[in-house]
């Protein structure tokens, strides 16, 4: 090994290391915000197109890989539709009854405060559990706001710049969301897991949680408002040796296919 050459390499790498630490420090005190804004302004439209293309590609790959199970899925879906129609009919009955009771009691409808619609411009789901959307501080988005897709929770605004915002998804390790079972009302907290599932932890032993139960946000001590859908319980670990129960929850939103989303004000 040539000592001179190796010294050169160490020196160059040392300079790069010092430069990166300096930029990290400058970034942490918000000195580089304008650079992020400028980059977002230039790249956001291109990345939106990229994301559209990737959603299409993922869709095709997904369809090809699932082609063998289509027939079986179709049968299951038919059965599910029949069951849902039955439940819908019951639901409509309850809804009418509920509205009538509300009118009699003069209760005010608790409407969600919608801010704006945005579009996903990039997604880092496999490694980062984040997405970026094409709305930012210019559109009054703030850190801690909540991103939803219909009634489904998507994530929380982690970082905002002028034109774009970074969202940490609900299955990210940064989000421990207080949740509850929709049927048995067991309470717990979400915890990141590998793949499209998250764990619901800290469920007390005397509480009941079952497979296929829908898990929603509880709205307690969190930016997430109540009753946003998180997922469905796929497995319950109620080992009596443990002090609490743990449930595995399959997230219902396919983040790779997200396009339009809504940003709502988080609870403060």
């Amino acid at each position: 090994m040539k000592i001179e050459e190796f010294k050169n390499r160490i020196a160059v790498l040392g300079v790069i290391a010092i430069f990166s630490i300096l930029t990290l420090l400058l970034d942490s005190v918000g000195f580089l915000t304008k650079m992020y804004d400028f980059t977002a302004f230039i790249t956001a439209p291109i990345r939106l197109q990229f994301h559209q293309l990737s959603v299409d590609i993922n869709d095709i790959i997904g369809s090809v890989s699932q082609i063998t199970s289509f027939k079986e899925d179709n049968e299951n879906l038919r059965q599910e539709v029949a069951d849902l129609l039955e439940r819908l009919s019951e639901f409509e009955e309850y809804k009418a009854e509920n509205e009538s009771l509300k009118r009699q009691l003069k209760l005010r409808e608790d409407e969600r405060e919608w801010i704006l619609q945005g579009r996903v411009i990039s997604a880092d789901i496999a490694y980062g559990n984040t997405i970026q959307i094409n709305v930012g501080s210019r559109d009054e988005v703030e850190e801690g706001d909540i991103v939803v897709s219909g009634e489904y929770a998507v994530g929380k605004v982690k970082k905002v710049n002028e034109y774009t915002s970074l969202i940490s998804l609900i299955n990210s390790g940064e989000n421990n969301i207080p949740v509850k079972g929709q049927v048995n009302r067991a309470r717990g907290i979400t915890q990141a897991n590998v793949g499209p599932t998250i764990d619901m932890i800290d469920i007390l032993p005397d509480e009941v949680i079952e497979e296929d139960e829908v898990i929603v946000t509880s709205g307690l001590e969190s930016n997430f408002p109540a009753d946003l859908i998180i997922g469905v319980v796929t497995k319950v670990n109620d080992n009596p040796a443990n002090t609490t129960q743990v449930a595995e929850v399959k997230v219902q939103v396919d983040f790779s296919k997200l396009d339009y989303i809504y940003v709502i004000k988080g609870q403060r």
């Binding site: 790498l13 790069i16 990290l24 942490s28 970026q132």
Partner: peptide, 22 residues
């Protein structure tokens, strides 16, 4: 910059492997 990482994070992650590679 585009991925909203902290600027310098990827760069710092690049330094040690390049050192090892060298």
């Amino acid at each position: 910059l585009t991925m909203h990482n902290q600027l310098g994070r990827t760069l710092l992650s690049l330094v040690f492997p390049i050192l090892i590679m060298s």
